[in-house]
Design a binder for these strands. Structure first.
Lengths: 334, 334
DNA sequence: AGTTATAATTAAAGCGGTTTAATTTGTCAA
DNA sequence: TTGACAAATTAAACCGCTTTAATTATAACT
């Protein structure tokens, strides 16, 4: 319609080779007239580049909304800026079968890169060792434990937990319990390690009677605090490994007539927007989730751009979380 | 490698035409040996069918996690079952510019269908009237107000709100305030209408001093209840248009030394998993969000399969929400 | 005007599948 | 042995784009 060949149209649109001003104009008007929209599948086929990033997360069932949503926001913004579309994949179990089904699908779609953001559970990243990397697009892990052989963006959970516990110690707490997430999650483990580390620094009790495992959900926070109180009547502070479980702990405190912070200090993890509307407002650890998502995309983009040829060595990005102090942990009331 | 032509491989894999058992075997082993993975872009190009569903949501910033996450879960499961991958798109403003940019991207990717799940704001669906439907893949709207000309899956917000308010009336409340969402959201409007309807049925006050607008976030629930209490000292119940704002209202009640439910009944909307760990546990309206997502996919799938030719008339699916009673609304304590 | 260099364009091949129409192979009856 | 018919296979075209190599148009210099 513009009286030129498809090759010229291609050049006009991608700008890879110069096109005469006159033809350029004719092409643009023709495009507008026809409502033409380039077919990205065809373009991808020809370019061997889909401009699609695959993001793999655990099914957003009843837990972990906050983390995934925030990270996804960060991912999306950056991906959009760099011209990628994002394809979402869900994995529920750690069954290798399901993992490989997902990987196959990603491979079949010829995604340019993968952000693997499944919360890590003991051994559910082992498959990485079994694959030939050249069979798959570049892979960046989000929120998993750093490994020098892999590209990883993570938050320093241990440091965050230490921050929380050290703060409570400073506020005068001496018997500090912890409500962890499921024992096999990496994030649980490192938050537990942070709790332990901070207590050891201060020569305080880290006995197992101070540890109870939750499942991230509020109800397990309720039960968790009950158990802790039974085991340790002298308990004077609790670190809940996420805000939702902290909410459950607050529930139990109310039910037992315990005042937070007068009788018990409490700190959570995540710093969800609701935390400041808990009663009392909850001190929590803020993670740069949005930022971590963004970094993961940048990282992946670099690897993709550099081409698989020049072997770029994997990098580790560790973000430091931050303590947000609110009333639940302030012995001296404000 | 299997000594057959690509055409035969195609037939073997898709099963569209019969292939001799012997060749079939040879093909399978060759595939296993080579680690072959069909290129879905090429397949899509040839078939004019991408097997991709585009899901458009508002950026999961600080609000609305719960709704989007649940719906996405439903969408994902069903999409997976039917062999679709899902591509995620984010729209933030209601600027037509951004909307059309998104639509163009979807069109360029040749998605088979679109689930438009942007929370509806006054007029931000008007673009639908301006487009030629045949330019775009089939479109289903999720959580927007029904329109006979469009394919829509929605939850009956008005009925849900009425349920909540009627329940409080039954519990003896006579002066029932409401904390709404932003005034321009369709969901706010219909929940407000439900509140009004239930009160009118019972001949109770619906004056504007009983209405205050929030923004879905907890903090606005705090402020909201403050305002209501100032305007109406006789207030004896509140309907918060989501659980998060209800949490804020609880905060204010605690701060003012008011007991829920003794001094004030409270009902929320969403029935988030945390609601039962609020103090007191929150009565709320449960929406079948996961189910609505699933239905949207089914609906779209049907339209896609039927081919654009036989014009399938758009259907409306309205789901009824459900009242979940907990202590926050029980005058007679349990 | 005649070369030559340069810029713009195009024809054709290729990306990796599917599909149609034609061909080969195999079976069986005459 | 031949011919007819069905089943399996394949060659080649096509999906819509990019790109290389070749070609044509344009400008610049003797």
């Amino acid at each position: 319609m513009a009286g030129v060949s498809t090759g010229t149209v291609s050049n006009a649109l991608t700008g890879k080779r110069p096109v005469a001003e006159a033809s350029h104009q004719r092409i643009l008007t023709a495009i507008a007239e026809l409502g033409y929209q380039p077919n990205l599948m065809a373009r991808g086929l020809a370019n061997q580049r889909s401009h699609v990033l695959s993001v793999v997360i655990k099914e957003l069932s009843d837990l972990g909304f906050y983390g995934y949503s925030s990270a996804l926001t960060g991912i999306q913004r950056e991906a959009n800026r760099l011209g990628y579309s994002i394809m979402l994949h869900f994995v529920n179990s750690s069954a290798e079968e399901e993992i490989f089904a997902t990987l196959d699908q990603i491979r079949a779609r010829r995604a340019d890169g993968i952000i693997w953001a499944i919360h890590e559970v003991d051994g559910n990243r082992d498959w990485v060792r079994d694959i030939r990397p050249e069979d798959y697009p570049p892979l960046t892990f989000l929120h998993m434990h750093p490994d020098p052989a892999l590209s990883v963006v993570a938050i320093d959970n241990q440091a965050g937990a230490s921050l929380a516990v050290a703060h409570m110690i400073e506020q005068g707490a001496r018997t500090i319990g912890i409500i962890t997430g499921p024992a096999d999650w990496w994030e649980s483990q490192s938050r537990l390690a942070g709790w332990q580390h901070a207590l050891e620094q201060a020569n305080l009790d880290t006995g197992s009677s101070l540890v109870v495992a939750g499942d991230w959900l509020a109800e397990s926070g309720q039960k968790g605090l009950e158990t802790l109180l039974n085991q340790r009547p002298d308990l004077d502070a609790v670190f809940a490994c996420n805000d939702t479980m902290a909410l459950g702990a607050i529930y139990t405190a109310h039910r037992c007539g315990l005042s937070i912070p007068d009788d018990l200090l409490l700190v959570g993890f995540d710093n969800t927007p609701e935390a400041e509307s808990y009663w009392p407002p909850l001190t929590s650890i803020h993670q740069g989730l949005r930022q971590s998502g963004q970094i993961a995309v940048d990282e992946l983009h670099q690897i993709i751009e550099s081409g698989k040829n020049e072997h770029i060595s994997p990098r580790q990005h560790i973000l430091q979380p931050e303590l947000i102090i609110r009333r639940s942990s302030m012995r001296d009331k404000i």
